[in-house]
């Protein structure tokens, strides 16, 4: 139990996917204009991450390793993630139109989100078991949501402010992300790496 808690807190705060491992930068820069949409994006990513962690865990351990096909890891993972996203989209549209309206437009974007693929690739490298993999995925999703919502809150305030034209858009967002990453580095001392 303590081990799982450490994995969770470690992935949310210390090894935050966005701010420490640079995974999922595209949505982090692209979908962080408003807090509401940022939160929905975070939820959609967390959901798909957890599903992807479970499915790729079985593919890796019960298909690729027994058959000696580890070299197909990249190809099979990306195909599984792409079809998983499609399935989730179809499923949500049928079962929960409310949730579909909230998350739907973000789902196609998630296929090429490197945070999902990165998570699938990291699980075998870290040697996690099934439960640990799920906790790791949840931590990664919550960490992503935290980072993107914080950034959206800052950018909402920034809309009003008067700043040099050259800094507008990407430049100031990256500099703010840098300051945020610096703040998150402080957690390294709290939990230890």
């Amino acid at each position: 139990m303590e081990n799982l808690l450490l994995i969770f807190a470690g992935t949310v705060l210390v090894n935050n996917f966005v701010l420490a491992q640079f995974l999922g930068i595209c949505p982090y820069l692209g979908v962080s204009r408003q807090v509401d949409t940022a939160f929905s994006m975070g939820m959609a990513v967390t959901f798909v991450m957890t599903m992807a962690a479970m499915v790729t865990f079985f593919i890796q351990n019960y298909l690729l390793i027994p058959l000696g096909l580890e070299y197909l890891q990249t190809v099979s993972f990306i195909l599984v993630i792409a079809s998983l996203v499609q399935l989730v989209e179809i499923f949500l549209r049928k079962v929960s139109p409310v949730l579909y309206r909230a998350l739907g437009i973000f789902l196609p974007l998630i296929t090429t989100n490197c945070a999902i693929m990165g998570l699938a690739l990291l699980i075998p490298r870290e040697g996690y078991n099934f439960i640990e993999a799920i906790v790791f995925a949840l931590g990664a999703g919550v960490g992503f949501t935290l980072a993107i919502v914080l950034m959206a809150g800052l950018r909402e305030q920034l809309e009003m402010s008067d700043m040099p034209q050259a800094l507008r858009g990407g430049a100031i967002t990256l500099i703010m992300a840098g300051l945020m990453a610096m703040a998150f580095m402080g957690f390294a001392g709290v939990i230890g790496t």
């Binding site: 640079f22 040099p164 430049a171 100031i172 990256l174 300051l179």
Partner: peptide, 13 residues
């Protein structure tokens, strides 16, 4: 990590 964000931001600006 913070240096990556900040230096790319400054270069872009």
């Amino acid at each position: 990590p913070p240096g990556a964000f900040i230096s790319l931001g400054v270069i872009l600006a």
